Simulated assay, not measured.
Amino acid sequence: MQDETPKPIDGRDWTGPDHRSEGLDGLIAPPLSRRGFVMTSLMTGLTLATTRVEAQAIHTDTTGIEAGEVRIPAGDGPMPGYRAMPEGKGPFPIVLVIEEIFGVHDYIKDICRRLAKAGYCAVAPELYARQGDLSRMTDVQEIVRDVIAKTPDAQWMADLDATIVWAASASKGDPERIGVMGWCRGGRAVWLYAAHRRDLKAAVAWYGPVGGERTGIQPRTAGDVAAEIHAPLLALYGGADTGIPVASVEAARDKANAAGKSVTLTVFPDAPHGFHADYRPSYRKDAAAAGWSKALDFLKANGVG
């Protein structure tokens, strides 16, 4: 069996201060007092927290790729996740895939396979595995209240850092070419992680909230950190998203660009929130396909490819 213990890459500590921003007050914390993992494996199928599953849900096969559930060492035990990558020797550029609020279910797994088909080592860690079992939850408000709101930002940032170490040391990933992509709440995480991780090459945020409530464990919004991002960021948003005003995203973009950072915003005028989620009624095929093409081009244009 392949040793999956994280190791330094080329003698360097890829989770150390050379690669993280120490200036995000409240986001870089001392070693966390962590609870055990509630989810020890990923859910099978799609989230139960949806009223129906649409017939257009995409399924990407595994021809030419290696794909499946993995265990990622995360300091307090093995964190469940899903990894897909091309067959062959590698190393392959790494793309962290950050889930919506519903867990690493079949939609997120399929995104990893799509990225693997494009040449990436795509890894989706289950970032809420300590806070609740998303495979059993059916109520969106319960998920937000009891899981999402109780997950410290510092915790999942550390877990993403650990995922990079694992991908580079045990999964044919190239630590010199790291990107991140996230949807919905994962889109918020993309903005924050881009301000945390100095060695990111590119970040893609799909309709992630840029505002919202600040709490002791989630002290800053995506808009708060917009001027601090370390990587070019592509923001993909829907003009018909009733929960995220386009003006708020434009303000975050302008704040970043005024600080000398690079944020490219694409708004699909008629697209609602969740327009990429092919298993839900919110799916808009044309906007999803155009956004996906832009995302892949953006990764490659910024050295993740």
Rank of each mutant, 00 (worst) to 15 (best):
D199C: 12
Y207P: 12
T163K: 05
I229K: 01
A168Q: 03
A158T: 07
S262R: 11
R145F: 08
S169A: 06
A194I: 05
D270Y: 14
W156Y: 09
R136W: 04
D254R: 13
L200T: 04
V249L: 07
L236Y: 03
A189G: 00
E250I: 14
G187R: 03
F268S: 15
M157V: 02
K261H: 13
T215Y: 14
G187L: 02
E142R: 09
V180A: 15
D153L: 10
P125Y: 02
P269A: 15
L233G: 04
K172G: 00
A167W: 04
V246I: 15
T264H: 14
R198F: 02
L234R: 11
P209R: 06
V144T: 12
T242I: 13
W206D: 10
N257W: 10
D224L: 02
P219L: 08
T221A: 05
G223C: 01
T221W: 03
V249I: 05
N257A: 14
L233W: 07
C184I: 00
P152I: 03
W206Q: 07
A247L: 05
G239T: 07
V180Q: 15
E126W: 04
D146M: 05
Q131A: 04
D241M: 00
T151Y: 04
T242Q: 14
D254N: 15
G179C: 10
G238E: 08
G186C: 05
V144L: 14
V180P: 12
A259Y: 05
A154S: 08
P152A: 08
G173D: 14
T266G: 07
A222E: 14
L265R: 01
R197D: 10
A189Q: 03
K150L: 15
Q218R: 11
A168R: 03
I164Q: 12
E176W: 09
G208A: 00
K201H: 01
M137H: 11
Q141R: 12
D241Y: 00
D199H: 12
Q218V: 02
G187P: 05
R220D: 08
W183M: 05
A205W: 08
R214N: 10
R197Y: 09
G186P: 03
L134I: 12
V249T: 06
V267L: 06
A203T: 05
Y193H: 13
Q141Y: 06
V267P: 03
V147H: 10
A202M: 01
R198L: 09
A222C: 13
F268M: 15
V263E: 07
G186N: 08
G187V: 00
C184Y: 00
A154I: 06
Q155L: 13
V165A: 15
G260V: 01
T151K: 07
R220G: 04
G260A: 02
P245S: 06
P209G: 06
A167E: 07
A195Q: 10
T264Q: 15
A259Q: 08
D146I: 01
A162T: 10
V180W: 14
R177L: 13
T163E: 09
I164L: 15
A227Q: 14
A189Y: 00
W166H: 04
W166L: 03
R253T: 05
L234G: 07
R253H: 10
H230V: 08
G187W: 03
I244F: 10
V144I: 15
R136C: 12
V144R: 14
I148D: 01
G223S: 03
T221L: 02
D139L: 09
V204M: 10
D199A: 11
T221P: 03
W166D: 01
P125G: 00
I148G: 01
R185A: 02
D241N: 00
